[in-house]
């Protein structure tokens, strides 16, 4: 078993930046491995962007919204409805209209479309940032409620309204005590490919990521 693990680790190193040609490991395992990139863009901050991040980024990157031609509001309402009824996105009834409003604000003929624009790191407007004196965990808690609770649940056990239906289910964050800060921050920044965990590095600045980390530390016994 140890040998297999070693093999896998070596393999991962070998193909890490080679983007994964099929690799012959040994006689027992013949692996083809690729590493798909994390999302390159995020939703432009604005009223409802947290809803879009929460509901849309589970299953697809924000590019799906921005590649669309400008749609009239009725079209966005129809799309949001289809995501809920046909594809099972657990959008609560009260979030339906605000989510459609946000999509209209991002890509519609009226009001004029405001596309996400690229800013240098750290220049982003971040709704969560303020000049309060609150401690990191408190700030982190409000970020957690805004961005994480829907999947990971109030206590971090992976039991939020969406968490259990995901494949794989949302992670139980009370079990990450042994992970290093770097490992947790990496996951927050880049997401977990192959799961619904999106990359947050475009939505949250480094300070906010650290605040979130501080809060996550309070969840573990």
């Amino acid at each position: 078993m140890k040998r297999v693990c070693m093999f896998l680790m070596v393999l991962l190193c070998v193909v890490g930046f080679g983007w994964g040609l099929p690799v012959n490991a040994d006689d027992r395992k013949q692996l083809s491995i690729i590493h798909l990139p994390s999302d390159p863009i995020s939703f432009q901050p604005g009223p409802g962007s947290d809803l879009a991040s929460r509901y849309c980024l589970m299953c697809h990157s924000a590019e799906y919204v921005y590649m669309q031609p400008p749609h009239p509001r009725e079209q966005w309402v129809e799309i949001v409805g289809k995501m809920k009824t046909s594809f099972g996105c657990p959008i609560s009834n009260e979030d339906m209209a605000p989510l459609a409003d946000y999509l209209v604000s991002q890509n519609s003929l009226q009001p004029s479309p405001s596309a996400p624009h690229v800013q240098a790191d750290g220049e982003k407007e971040t709704p969560g940032r303020s000049a309060t004196q609150a401690s990191d965990p408190q700030q982190g808690e409000s970020l957690y409620k805004r961005h994480c609770l829907t999947c990971h649940g109030p206590g971090g056990k992976g039991d939020g309204p969406i968490g259990p239906v995901l494949v794989p289910p949302a992670a139980n964050l009370t079990l990450i005590g042994k992970q290093s800060d770097k490992s947790i921050l990496d996951t927050l920044r880049k997401g977990r490919p192959g799961t619904a965990m999106p990359a947050w590095e475009h939505d949250l600045n480094p300070q906010e990521l650290n605040q979130l980390l501080s809060f996550l530390r309070t969840l573990t016994p």
Partner: peptide, 10 residues
């Protein structure tokens, strides 16, 4: 700006 991805390959 539009659709220019940040991060990985910007």
């Amino acid at each position: 700006g539009l659709l220019t991805p940040r991060g990985l390959w910007a």
